[in-house]
Computed example of a mutant assay.
Amino acid sequence: MKLCAVQARSIKGDVQANLERHLACIEQAAALGAELVVFPELSLTGYEPTLARQAALPVSAARLDPLQAACDRLGITAAVGLPLPTPEGIRIGMPIFSPGAPRQAYAKRRLHDDELPYFTPGDQALQLQLGEHRVAPAICYESMFMAHAVAAREQGADLYLVSVAKTAKGIDEGHAHYAEVARELGMPVLLANCVGPADTFIGAGGSAAWDSQGRLLARLDDHSEGMIVLDTRSAAAIAVPL
């Protein structure tokens, strides 16, 4: 199976422009043979906590229908980033669109301290069955705790799908950690980070894939948009420009 991580630059708060960019990336990922494509954290709005409340959309929103239509047509699953409104508050969400299936959403369960004024944590794990694989999503800060990946592995996951918005320091720390996750738990890791302005920092790219032995298979640079395509059958990955 092929999976794709998109390294993209979001336009601050412009859901429509970002959605159109997502659709183009989904088309390209499908053309490369991917069965799943993952985007960076809060990719449809950009990582902009101060805008989250006004930009939040439920996963059922008609505005997201083009994503579902593209996934239905292309036979691909897309995991995007979006603030999600809930009775408990706004969550850092990962809406998931699968062909011919109801929409799902995962929400970040462990928040960084500076996210607490804007977001409330999710409270449920989620795994995707894709072919022979069980895929566990993780969103940024929570993915830096080995316990999150361990719990996913214990629940049957054999692939760790990480969506982040990280600085240069954060991505360097992430690379060391995700290699350890892959090596210690024996499951490949696919990472999607943003590039360009995000909140008060610059997204530092470095989207990458590791095999089940913790070997780095492919990595994008710190500023270019692109894709990492991971082939789980051959345990190989390539970097593709956007």
Rank of each mutant, 00 (worst) to 15 (best):
M1Q: 09
M1N: 06
K2F: 10
L3R: 03
L3F: 06
A8G: 05
G13S: 02
A17C: 06
E20L: 14
E20N: 14
A24M: 02
I26Y: 11
A31R: 15
A34S: 14
E35Y: 10
L36C: 08
V37F: 05
V38P: 05
S43M: 09
G46V: 01
E48P: 00
A52W: 02
R53M: 06
R53K: 15
R53C: 02
A61M: 01
L67D: 03
A69L: 12
D72S: 11
R73C: 03
R73D: 09
G75S: 11
I76L: 15
I76A: 12
P85W: 00
T86V: 03
I92S: 04
M94K: 08
P95Q: 01
S98F: 04
A101W: 09
Q104R: 15
L111M: 09
F119N: 00
T120F: 02
D123A: 14
Q124H: 12
A125V: 00
Q127I: 12
Q129R: 15
Q129G: 12
V135E: 11
V135Y: 11
A136V: 01
P137F: 06
H148S: 03
R153A: 14
Q155I: 01
A157D: 09
A157V: 08
A157S: 10
D158A: 04
Y160G: 01
S163V: 01
S163G: 04
V164Q: 04
A165Y: 07
A168K: 08
G170K: 13
A176G: 13
Y178N: 06
M187Q: 13
L190H: 11
A192V: 11
C194W: 00
P197D: 10
P197G: 06
A198L: 10
D199K: 07
D199N: 14
F201T: 01
A208T: 09
A209C: 08
S212M: 01
S212N: 07
R215Q: 13
L217W: 14
L217A: 12
A218S: 13
A218F: 13
R219E: 12
M227R: 14
V229I: 15
L230E: 06
L230W: 08
L230H: 05
I238Y: 02
A239K: 00
L242M: 13
